[in-house]
Simulated scan of single mutants.
Amino acid sequence: MSASIVLPQVIRVGAGASAELAGTLDALGLSRPLLVTDPFVARQPFFLRLLADLEGAGLTPGVFADTVPDPTTTVVDAGVRALEEGRFDSLVGVGGGSPIDTAKAVALLGAHGGRMRDYRSPVVTDAPALPVVAVPTTAGSGSECTRYSIITDAETGEKMLCAGLAMLPRAALVDFELTLGMPARLTADTGVDALTHAIEAYVSARANPVSDGFAREAMRTIFAHLRTVYADPDDRAAREAVMVGATQAGMAFSNSSVALVHGMSRPIGAHFGVAHGLSNAMLLPAVTEFSVPSAPDRYADCARAMGLAAPDSTTGEATGALVWELRLLNQELEVPTPREYGIGPEPWWELAPLMAEQALASGSPGNNPRVPGAEEIVELYHAVYG
């Protein structure tokens, strides 16, 4: 069976790439971009420079700065109103995964109408949306080069996976300088998110030779440098490495898929407000240990790519090292358990069956090497609670 490989039309990577926004929009024939971001980014000097550069180049930009972590349908609808009122011809997502996912969703509804729930998985929307240019300011989500957007339904609380070529940005400007000075907690959470993307893309049932290459390189790069950027936020070489690795991990899972960690992670965020990268980190060691028996060779490859096992190590040695090192990484990055995060045992136990159902409904667990039933997912939620 063949694999369909898709990437943004333009990807610019390196220091200062974000300064090429005006030229990128012009080359795409776009002149009225709506910049979608959050209140914090909207106040930063680099963002004000982007606006000034666009205006200096003769473009007519607008700003929608009301995005929130874990974007909701309420925010997306407000963005669509801003898009229509300003008659903009494109979207520029500036920020972490939430503003970029919001920009994608606004572009989708701006082109096709309806509500976001009309486009939730298993629906796949390949018809083109309005053009999106992504300018990530965190090294984690990979949303700048994926055909996915995660939007929370404000009425039901469900985190909806929306997929298809309509969600793929037209261009991505990957500038590691925008991540300098990121707080340690955000650095850790987004970094483990990216590492999870790479591992799950590699072990997914939908993996292919192209996604494998992106995933292996992303694992190698992120694992080698994540501890460094956590300890020293201003290490430019490590920041660049992790930023590039996160983008490669996005390329990997966009052309393969994510699996059980992500399926279980989204309900934790929806019900308890845990940041997506952090909930992934809480789950990754236990879910990996659960899944290893069904794809030991693939997980052993992950360990070797990350430098955790010698090329001539046995499969058992490599997979054992992988699970051990993922637990150690969580300790060193001070990843809390759900209990340590402050989630009480009663709501956790009470909601575990519902979260398991929601995880399965997302479709992601079906890509896992070991496809679990609802009871097994509940057991995993109990195991990671702490």
Rank of each mutant, 00 (worst) to 15 (best):
A295Y: 00
V63N: 04
A172H: 11
D153P: 02
L51P: 00
L326D: 08
V132N: 07
S204V: 10
R115P: 01
E289P: 03
P345Y: 02
R220Y: 04
A249V: 08
S362I: 05
G250R: 12
Q331P: 00
Q358S: 04
G277D: 03
M219R: 09
G344A: 15
A78E: 09
S265Q: 09
E317S: 11
L109K: 06
P293W: 01
P353S: 04
L51F: 01
S279D: 02
L7W: 13
L351I: 02
Y202N: 07
D301P: 01
S31W: 04
A166H: 07
Y119G: 02
H262R: 08
M160N: 06
A201Y: 13
T137K: 06
T228L: 13
S362M: 08
L109D: 03
V371E: 14
F223T: 09
V384P: 02
Y230N: 03
V292A: 09
C162P: 01
D77C: 05
A303K: 10
R12A: 13
G250W: 12
P372K: 12
L322M: 12
V335D: 00
L30D: 07
E55S: 10
L25D: 03
G164C: 09
G62I: 00
V68P: 01
R304T: 06
S141V: 13
G62Q: 13
L21Q: 05
E85L: 14
E84R: 15
L161Y: 12
D118E: 13
P33Q: 13
D297T: 07
N255R: 11
P336W: 08
S204P: 09
P136R: 12
T24D: 05
G277L: 02
L173R: 07
A139V: 08
V6Q: 14
D26P: 01
